[in-house]
Design a protein around this nucleic acid. Structure first.
Length: 699
RNA sequence: GCUGGUGUGGCGGAAUGGCAGACGCACGGGACUUAAAAUCCCGAGGUGGCAACACCGUGUGGGUUCGACUCCCACCACCAGCACCA
């Protein structure tokens, strides 16, 4: 079979006739929106794209046959490290790098026979696109959802940039894999935490694999408990104020023997003159700030800390004096940054109490001689309380409720929900990204640019390296940095950091609905017509972060009336990986790294497309192998041969029956992304069809 | 440690309460060929048997059911995500 001739013929026709063009406001056909996660513009396509794009393409093609007006767009995630690294290492202008990269990748996607509507292509680094990324930031700023604050943040010394929690999971830089340290810097934050409940609702509504949903819920980390205020005293008995703690185990409140505060807590600064061992305290603070998150994690069992001499609090339920400690196992960013320590029923507190010789009071039955009896155990057994005044002898489930009521009635506690997720740290000290549309004026402070001044174009330079002090390359361009305040006309400086790579990808599905609009990020009526993405496909690598950011921005845009829907996606499919012969993710550095282009060259694109998906299900990781590819080739040869065997007037009832059986099967399988069983159904059909045709010949 | 998932021939994998192993690869036998490749036909989970057939068989152990890869309980292994979150 002359697959090259066939591919050329059809790809040329698709180029000329544009049969995959999506029509805005189609008068008769219902809409269907299929989205493939746009590729990062770096080099060539890889097998992951072959695995990821094909089922989306198959679905888009089927929906067109079923009479839908299908939007199946593509673009490029073009800001970020690959272009910037090429600029720094090879002196290539990032604009040229991206322009070439877009051309290459789109050309290769065409070779894959993908039925994208290439007329709607966008790249996040085009000013016509990032004008609207900046516009969204402007809205966030003007609605009080963006703020700049000095704080301890994740910093990668290697990449010279601040990282969000999402980008530094496990204490490692998501970009370079190096250790991340805590550094105090000015950081832009987006108020994502505020959206926790809404994001949880988005997660409930979307159709997505359970493990992915669970990963997102864990990331948000909702936790119900109580916030309790403790009166704070100096050693001589003078009341100084209050300290609030957050706990999910109010039932253990009679077992408190100390309080632990995060080392960064501002209380230390406030009562400096009351703390007797200030030198020791400050030294401990310094020590923990220097330790990277990775170090903190590597010695989980080793508890370090430092007593705050000169201060104490009083337990409101039994009026006992409770000492205060600083320890780095308490995180400043979660809850109130202070915890009540009950060593008898929390293993961390237990370890800390042993290390610092603090007494342990047991308040729930069980054996605490070797380790704490934790909540999982005592709740399961509904053990009885002890040493807890009027609650002693009460089963813990009941006591939890009664003690909550008491604390609330005393006016020292309230119910509280906390989230692990923090606000999104939103600036990077790099060059190749969206400039912030904000200036800092000597009189007016942070001032947003006017909408009409967008886009704020990223200035040209040939020096892409960060500044020596860790500021971005933009900070070196003084002509650009120094400007006038749009409010008062006085002297002002531009923000020299850029937005993270995630910015451009947090709203791009909206732009495809109306990619050339220069009046709005998307026309409201068009957004209404295309609605939510019906099926969104792509890798699982960054899925937790990407989808949560997407939910956040779409919620915000919905609330300010910019888009008509709260949910960006109806359904999200996460593609599995193609593994190499070691069972590891296949990458360019793998010894046997295979390019889809060489498979296409040798076997033809249809064989390549089918083979990858005959290997296994869409969401499964599948090891790559050339073994079995001959079966697909042989099958397609048989299909090709059918054109000379089966003629129109030779179709029997049996043929029709088999055909309908096939259509039913593949319609279901395509919806479910089960291309392996769909291909198998085709094979069975062709085999049956051939033998039916032979019977016709014989009769 | 926590959460979610997975576990089926030599291999990739089908089957979600009803004949386990569809489909494909690799393998064995045959046809065509001087020969090979390609193609076509046949075979094939394991054990025993010339054979009909019998027994065993979906990570391990138990249970529910007329019937379990499938549902329930416990355990083991692997994969992924999170991880001192109070």
């Amino acid at each position: 079979m002359d697959f090259k001739g066939i591919e050329e013929k059809w790809q040329k026709r698709w180029e000329e006739e544009k049969p995959f063009k999506a029509i805005d406001f189609h008068p008769t056909k219902p809409k269907y929106y299929v989205l493939y996660e746009f590729p990062n513009i770096s080099g060539n396509i890889h097998l992951g794209h072959l695995k990821g794009t094909i089922p989306a393409d198959v679905l888009a093609r089927m929906k067109r046959f079923q009479g839908y007006n299908v939007l199946f767009p593509i673009g490029g995630d073009a800001f970020g490290m690959p272009a910037e690294n090429a600029a720094i290492k090879k002196g290539i202008n990032p604009r040229d790098f991206v322009a070439n990269g877009m051309k290459t990748i789109m050309g290769q996607f065409k070779k894959l026979g993908l039925s994208f509507d290439f007329d709607r292509t966008v790249a996040t680094s085009d000013p016509e696109y990032y004008k609207w990324t900046q516009w969204i930031f402007l809205q966030l700023f003007n609605h009080g959802k963006a703020y700049k604050q000095k704080g301890f943040v994740n910093f990668c010394p290697n990449c010279q940039t601040v990282l969000s929690n999402e980008d530094s999971q496990g204490g490692k830089c998501d970009r370079c894999g190096g250790a991340v340290v805590q550094e105090e810097r000015w950081v832009w934050f987006l108020k994502m935490k505020e959206y926790s409940e809404k994001l949880l609702e988005n997660i409930d509504r979307i159709q997505m694999a359970e493990n992915l949903k669970e990963a997102q819920r864990n990331w948000i980390g909702r936790s119900e408990g109580m916030q309790v205020a403790f009166d704070l005293f100096e050693d001589n008995g003078t009341k100084l104020g209050q300290i609030e703690i957050f706990t999910t185990c109010i039932e253990t409140i009679y077992g408190i023997t100390f309080l632990v505060l995060a080392p960064e807590i501002d209380l230390v600064d406030k009562y400096k003159d009351k703390i007797k061992n200030l030198d020791e305290v400050m030294a401990y603070r310094k020590q923990t700030a220097l330790r990277s998150e990775f170090d903190r994690m590597s010695d989980l069992k080793e508890k370090t800390g430092c007593k705050l001499d000169g201060l104490y609090v009083v337990n409101p339920v039994n009026n006992t004096k409770v000492p205060l400690y600083l320890a780095d196992f308490v995180l400043a960013g979660y809850g109130t940054g202070c915890v009540m320590a009950v060593p008898s029923h929390d293993q961390r507190d237990y370890d800390f109490a042993k290390a610092f010789n603090i007494p342990i009071i047991q308040v729930i039955e069980g054996d605490i001689s070797k380790q704490a009896v934790e909540k999982k155990e005592y709740l399961a057994k509904n053990s009885k309380l002890m040493n807890s005044d009027e609650f002693s002898g009460m089963p813990v489930l009941e006591a939890k409720k009664k003690i909550s009521e008491k604390v609330i009635a005393m006016g020292v506690g309230k119910k509280q929900v906390n989230y692990k997720m923090q606000d999104w740290s939103f600036n990077r000290q790099r060059y190749w990204g969206e400039p912030f549309p904000v200036v800092f004026c000597e009189h007016c402070g942070a001032v947003a640019l006017d909408e009409k001044d967008l886009p704020l174009v990223l200035p040209e330079t040939d020096d892409y390296r960060p500044n020596v002090n860790g500021d971005s390359a933009l900070s070196k361009l003084t002509d650009w940095v120094n400007c006038k305040c749009p409010k008062c006309g006085g002297k002002a400086r531009r923000e020299t950091d850029i937005m993270p790579n995630w910015a451009g990808s947090s709203w791009y599905w909206l732009r495809y609905m109306d990619p050339r609009n220069d009046k709005a990020l998307v026309d409201f009526e068009k957004a209404k017509y295309w609605g939510s993405v019906d099926c969104y496909t792509g890798g699982t690598e960054h899925i937790t972060r990407h989808v949560l950011y997407a939910f956040f921005w779409q919620n915000f845009l919905y609330e300010i009336g910019a888009v008509p829907t709260r949910d960006p996606f109806v359904r999200k499919m996460g593609s599995g990986l193609i593994l190499d012969d070691q069972g590891k993710k296949m990458s360019k550095s793998s010894t046997n790294g295979v390019s889809p282009l060489e498979v296409i060259e040798k076997y033809g694109v249809d064989v390549a497309r089918m083979h990858v998906h005959f290997l296994g299900g869409y969401e499964d990781n599948t090891p790559w192998t050339y073994e079995g590819i001959t079966g697909i080739t042989a099958f397609l040869d048989k299909v090709w041969a059918l054109k000379d065997i089966v003629k129109g007037d030779e179709v029997s009832k049996e043929h029709i029956f088999e055909l309908n059986r096939l259509i039913k099967k593949i319609t279901e399988d395509y919806q479910d992304f089960k291309l392996n069983t769909a291909i198998s159904a085709f094979m069975i059909f062709v085999k049956t069809d051939l033998s039916l045709s032979k019977n016709l010949d014989n009769s």
